[in-house]
């Protein structure tokens, strides 16, 4: 009994720094954002006294659904394509020789050595209307000379996938590395085709990696701001850009907070759903596996 209590205490102490961190830098600001949603705005960009539901009503703004829909479809497509690209990559990395694996891992991580912003600007150079890629594609007759590679939703999608791909590869690789590949051999011995074994044995085996990859890509995608701002055009605005506009241009913090709260709720839904799913499937392992 006593020993148990001591263990409890030391567990608490170990958790305390991260708990405080999350409390101060995540929970408190989030609660504030939700609270500001219910405050009135002053014409000079301040937060007024008292409480109001006015902001909540503005979320019914007829111009929002288009932006929300765009944010969701871009995020869903980016996440799906990232996972589709990352799964064979993770499989490959788990199967190759350690020397090559280290090399590939290095290549996956290498882009992080350059600033995120610099890499987005590099895409502007690559897709430049007077750039080599544009000229090559035009020369090959694949696109018309007046087609713009930049400043549309597809450019945003491309750069989103480029930026977020490593976040899908890493958890899938981590899960694949732990996967017991003898199971696939066993399946083949029992008559399964390679593709069938991949689908029925490998994919369920790295389920946790796939779910983590989903969260790691989908959540930042929903909150995209810089990418649509730089490579997006007049019709590729996402929710993050609207929040920035409400804060800086319209000087209406409650409206910005209302949209942020909406985004937070949108992010929480897949997280809660996936956590619940995992708990239901393997109540005991869920916590351990989350550590992947």
């Amino acid at each position: 009994m006593k020993a148990g209590r001591r263990r409890n205490l030391s567990e608490w102490l170990v958790t305390l720094p991260s708990l405080l961190w999350l409390l101060l830098l995540f929970l408190v600001p989030t609660v504030l954002v939700f609270a500001i949603t219910f405050k009135p705005a002053t014409p000079y960009g301040g937060i007024g006294d008292g409480w109001t539901l006015a902001t909540l009503r503005t979320l019914g703004n007829p111009n929002y659904p288009a932006i929300i829909w765009r944010t969701v479809w871009l995020s869903v497509v980016a996440t799906t394509l990232c996972i589709l690209l990352a799964t064979p990559m993770g499989y490959y990395m788990a199967r190759v020789s350690p020397a090559r694996r280290r090399l590939v891992l290095l290549l996956v991580i290498l882009p992080f050595w350059t600033s995120f912003l610099v890499r987005i600007f590099a895409w502007k150079v690559l897709l430049h209307p007077e750039g080599m890629l544009k000229h090559a594609l035009t020369f090959l007759g694949l696109i018309a000379p007046e087609t713009s590679l930049l400043y549309n939703a597809y450019a945003v999608l491309l750069v989103m996938i480029y930026t977020e791909l490593p976040f899908a590869i890493l958890p899938i690789y981590a899960a694949s590395e732990k996967f017991d590949f003898r199971l696939i051999e066993a399946a083949k011995d029992l008559g399964a085709t390679s593709f069938f074994a991949f689908r029925k044995i490998f994919l369920p085996g790295i389920r946790v990696g796939l779910l983590t990859a989903f969260l790691m890509v989908f959540i930042p995608s929903l909150g995209s701001y810089v990418i649509p701002d730089i490579v997006g055009g007049p019709t590729s605005e996402m929710l993050g850009n609207k929040i920035a506009q409400r804060t800086f241009v319209d000087r209406n913090l409650p409206h910005a907070a209302g949209l942020s709260a909406l985004l937070t709720v949108a992010v929480l839904i897949p997280m809660v759903a996936i956590t619940a799913l995992r708990r239901k499937e393997s109540p005991k392992d869920a916590l351990i596996e989350e550590g992947v």
Partner: peptide, 21 residues
């Protein structure tokens, strides 16, 4: 006009013009 625009832009338009973008 918006149909003809590449984007609404406050910062990069200068470099964009200079580089022929």
């Amino acid at each position: 006009w918006k149909k003809n625009l590449a984007k609404f832009e406050n910062e990069q338009y200068k470099n964009g013009l200079a580089s022929g973008e």
